[in-house]
């Protein structure tokens, strides 16, 4: 089904609003964007096309683990991110690749900057979303593939990308 301009704009707005929730550290509200069968994946920088669960990756969360991740990040005891860092994310080049009445598959480029302890860590890459239409859009699948060849010099990817 062809992608009309209004739907494309709707999805782009959705991604922009999502980015705002993350930058404002409104992580509990961000969680509300996901379906119960959601999956959030960050593949290994050395094997980005590997199948999650069969090759090592960085993140392969179901909704329970994603909730655990947010609970950890907001607990004050996830020391890597407590006190919390500033982040600023740029989501661009949004493409809606597949569209059915119920689902949309979209990709976008991202640049997420994390600022903490006087340092700026830019992480760039590509998002892939599978969105489900359900009172607006919900995220069923969210994949953030980073372009870094290794996680250097930052070490961790412990914020939500």
């Amino acid at each position: 089904m062809s992608v009309d301009a209004a739907t494309r704009l709707e999805i782009e707005d959705f991604l922009t609003e999502e980015a705002a929730l993350l930058d404002e550290w409104r992580l509990d509200e961000w969680l509300e964007l996901f379906t119960e069968d959601a999956q959030y994946v960050v593949p290994s920088p050395t094997l980005p096309d590997g199948q999650p669960g069969q090759v090592l990756g960085l993140i392969d969360d179901d909704i329970a683990r994603l909730r655990g991740r947010v609970e950890r990040l907001t607990s004050g005891f996830a020391y890597r991110e407590a006190p919390r860092p500033r982040t600023r994310r740029f989501v661009t080049n949004v493409r809606v690749l597949d569209l059915t009445p119920d689902e949309a598959r979209a990709t976008a480029s991202f640049l997420v900057c994390r600022l903490r302890n006087g340092q700026i860590e830019p992480i760039m890459g590509r998002y892939e979303y599978r969105l489900r239409r359900k009172d607006g859009w919900k995220i069923r699948y969210r994949r953030a593939q980073i372009d870094l060849e290794s996680i250097s010099p930052y070490g961790s990817v412990s914020i939500i990308l």
């Binding site: 960050v42 669960g53 069969q54 090759v55 090592l56 990756g57 960085l58 993140i59 392969d60 683990r65 655990g68 991740r69 950890r72 996830a78 020391y79 890597r80 991110e81 996680i151 070490g155 961790s156 990817v157 412990s158």
Partner: peptide, 22 residues
């Protein structure tokens, strides 16, 4: 196995980032 690796010692896990911070 992969899930447990990712959960604890992974670079985006619930353990290793705090080791790095320490």
């Amino acid at each position: 196995r992969i899930e447990q690796f990712e959960l604890f010692v992974g670079s985006a896990g619930f353990g290793a980032p705090d080791d790095m911070e320490a």
